[in-house]
């Protein structure tokens, strides 16, 4: 059997190479067809996460509350970063929940390809399914945190205003951005496990730079130059700011920040999708 006769058969009968990746548009369509699989994977994971604990999925509610309480104690009461902020509890809870969502999603994405190694070796499917299922799983948990956040906001005296309708928009933009960055990290994580060692340091630095427990606006008044700007426009700070702007009357976010939120979301989503797609063959 020579290669030439093989090539003839392949041509004549229109066979396709198994190692060839579909074009991006088709790849995205194939992934979309797997939407039910993505949801079911995410659901199974949620069940698994809490299946061994007595309180079960109640932890999804308790964990964010405990987190908020600790941060309030340290930064609100002990360190007094609340200076100049009306309604510090709502301000803090919004920051902590919004950032934690980004942090856990990125961390989980870095592991999503190696963790599903057996699945990848057993069944053929667009690997984009895996980071997306991870993101859906995190978003489900985030929604519970957001309900807690809204209760905290109302309980601490925030009135229900028309601005609350901007919250879904802010969240959608945040999801777009975080999906994009997760796809980039997922490809890195597939190539080398070293990334999981480095991520915590990067994420901690990013947390401090994003105004989770202090006001970037007040802080940057001391740094008018590029330092202040890069703090203000860093995506972490931007999305936290947009969420606070939606729920809190005392926060007035510049339109420029909303525009930055749109730009970051679109840019990262496109770059992330293309970058992850290009690595498709390397995940096998």
């Amino acid at each position: 059997m020579t290669s030439t006769s093989n090539a003839q058969l392949v041509d004549q009968y229109g066979l396709t190479s198994v190692s060839q990746t579909a074009p991006l548009s088709e790849y995205l369509r194939d992934t979309w067809k797997r939407i039910d699989f993505i949801k079911e994977l995410a659901n199974a994971r949620s069940t698994q996460q809490y299946s061994d604990s007595f309180l079960g999925r109640l932890w999804q509610l308790v964990t964010p509350l405990l987190n908020a309480a600790i941060y309030f104690l340290i930064f609100g009461v002990l360190l007094g970063t609340r200076k100049g902020i009306d309604n510090f509890p709502a301000f803090l809870v919004a920051g902590v929940f919004a950032f934690n969502f980004m942090q856990t999603t990125i961390t989980a994405s870095a592991n999503c390809i190696p963790k599903n190694d057996r699945l990848i070796k057993a069944i053929h499917f667009p690997k984009l399914v895996l980071p997306l299922a991870t993101a859906v799983n995190q978003v489900q948990q985030y929604f519970i945190s957001l309900i807690v956040l809204m209760i905290v906001a109302v309980a601490t005296g925030e009135p229900l205003t028309w601005m609350w309708l901007a919250l879904p928009v802010a969240l959608l933009l945040q999801f777009g951005f975080i999906s994009g960055i997760s796809l980039i990290v997922a490809r890195w994580g597939a190539r080398s496990r070293d990334i999981t060692q480095l991520l915590p340091f990067f994420l901690r630095t990013w947390r401090y730079a994003s105004g989770v427990f202090f006001s970037i606006a007040i802080f940057t008044s001391k740094f008018p130059g590029w330092i202040g700007k890069s703090l203000k426009y860093n995506p972490g700070a931007v999305y936290i700011d947009l969420i606070r702007d939606s729920l809190m009357v005392s926060i007035h976010t510049d339109l420029k920040i909303w525009i930055a939120g749109v730009v970051w979301a679109i840019v990262f989503l496109i770059v992330g999708l293309v970058y992850f797609y290009r690595g498709e063959r390397t995940y096998v």
């Binding site: 190479s17 198994v18 190692s19 070796k121 057993a122 053929h124 096998v284």
Partner: peptide, 12 residues
């Protein structure tokens, strides 16, 4: 298609 050949290819 679950194992990438290091050389050659499979067509289906």
């Amino acid at each position: 298609g679950l194992q990438k050949p290091s050389q050659g290819d499979v067509y289906t």
